[in-house]
Every structure is written in C-alpha cells, then in structure tokens.
C-alpha cells in the first residue's frame, strides 16, 4: 500500500470553507438587494407615479453630492460581482464534489430531506437564466412590448399584461425558485459563517423560511395584481 503523506494546504479562497464563506457573503448581498427591490416593486400599489419616482430616485440618489447614477452604478457593480463570485464558488464547489465521488452509487437514497441537494444547484441555474430574461424584459426593455423608451411603471404593467400570461408564469416559477433557494440558502449562510448553533438553529431555520415566504409574496403581488387587473 502506498505510504500516506500529508499534503500541503493552499490559500483561503481555494479552501472549501473559504468558497463557502464567499457564497454566504455574496448571497447576503443579493438578499439585501432583493429586499430593497421588493419594497420598491410594492410601490406600484401606491401609484404608477410613486413607482416611477422610486425608479428615478434610485438614479439620482445622493445628487448633487455625486454625479447622476453613481450610487446605482456602485450597487450594480457590487451585484454583478456578487453574482459572479457566487457562481464561481458554486461551480468550483460542485466540481470539487464531482471529483470527490468519481464512481457513482448504483442505488442512493436520501436520508435528510434531499431538499438542499436538488434545489440549490438546479435552482441556482434556473434563477441565473431568469435574471438574464428579467433584465432584458424590464431593465433594458429588449423583449418588452413597450421597449426601452417608456416609464418603468408602463413597462411593468405591459410586461405582465394578461395576454402575456406566460411571462407571468415564468416569473412565478422563478420567484418560487428564489424562495426555495433562499429557504435553504439563508440558513446555510448562517451555518457557513458559524452563527448557527443548537440553541439558535430552530429560530434561524424559521427566519430563513419566513424571509423567503415574505419575498415570494412581495415579488408575486405586483405581477398577479396586474394580471388580474387590480393594478392598471
């Protein structure tokens, strides 16, 4: 038998725990963004103007202290960075996992819920695809009937027009997926950053579930309201 030798460790970011920490931190950034995004979306229930003003305010925040769109750009850069790092960590962890089990089981049966195993990677991929579509639709207006030269509120209302029920459906699936992703992800981030423990675990899991539920409801409320004509 070959002589066992201890191997040399490498840096923090190449360690599995380091990558997990990156996922947790970038995930947290995106969750904060989602909360803000959702609150903004809900302004559509106040009025179209309120919603448009909010969209405008995002661009002019801290003006004239800073030039137009500075803060938003910073936030966007942070978000893009988070997405990239989150995906990098996820991909490199799943590659690591694959090479850790080169021969698959003939039979394998999950003993935990099996939830996290299936939902996280698959769900993450679905969400990533959706984000691309979502940006094209509502941010850049490429696939939106109103095009780019319209107010955000108009784009939103046109986007979820009953005639485009399938868009709402895609959106619904994606938002639910985000909820499922976060239900595990938020708790998992606490665990990864070492804040979960026996006493707190139940509360953390509950809060993660609650937060996910709030986000799902908050994000689904506007499109559904538009589709069913509550908001016009």
């Amino acid at each position: 038998m070959k002589k066992p030798t201890r191997k040399r460790p490498r840096g923090f970011l190449s360690s599995s725990n380091g990558k997990k920490a990156v996922m947790a931190v970038t995930g947290a950034v995106m969750v904060l963004f989602l909360i803000g995004h959702m609150l903004g979306n809900l302004k559509i229930f106040i009025s179209k103007d309120s919603f448009n003003e909010y969209a405008h305010a995002l661009r002019t925040l801290l003006e004239p202290l800073l030039p137009y769109r500075t803060l938003l750009t910073i936030v966007e850069i942070a978000l893009v960075l988070s997405v990239v790092l989150h995906m990098w960590a996820a991909i490199s962890l799943s590659r690591r996992a694959r090479s850790a089990r080169p021969v698959k089981y003939v039979a394998k049966k999950s003993q935990a819920t099996g939830y996290a195993t299936h939902i996280m990677r698959f769900g993450g991929l679905t969400i990533a695809l959706f984000v691309v579509w979502h940006l094209l639709d509502l941010t850049f207006g490429v696939v939106n009937p109103k095009g780019f030269d319209s107010t955000p509120a108009d784009r939103m209302i046109a986007g979820f027009d009953p005639s485009r029920w399938w868009v709402t459906l895609i959106y619904l699936v994606a938002v639910v997926m985000v909820g499922l992703h976060l239900r595990h992800g938020v708790w998992s981030a606490f665990q990864t950053l070492g804040w979960a423990n026996r006493d707190r675990n139940k509360a953390l899991r509950l809060s993660a579930g609650l937060l996910s539920a709030v986000l799902v409801v908050g994000f689904l409320a506007p499109p559904l309201a538009i589709m069913f004509g509550v908001v016009q």
Binding site: K7, S14, S16, K20, L93, T192
Partner: peptide, 18 residues
Amino acid sequence: MVDQMDAEGFGGCTNTGE
C-alpha cells in the same frame, strides 16, 4: 484540519444534512 480535509480531496459542505 480543514486544509488537510481539502488536500485529501473531500468535497465541500453544502449543509444538506445527509
């Protein structure tokens, strides 16, 4: 210990609870 665990080629934890 964590670095050694990585060096041995084990995968990372995704908190699945399995």
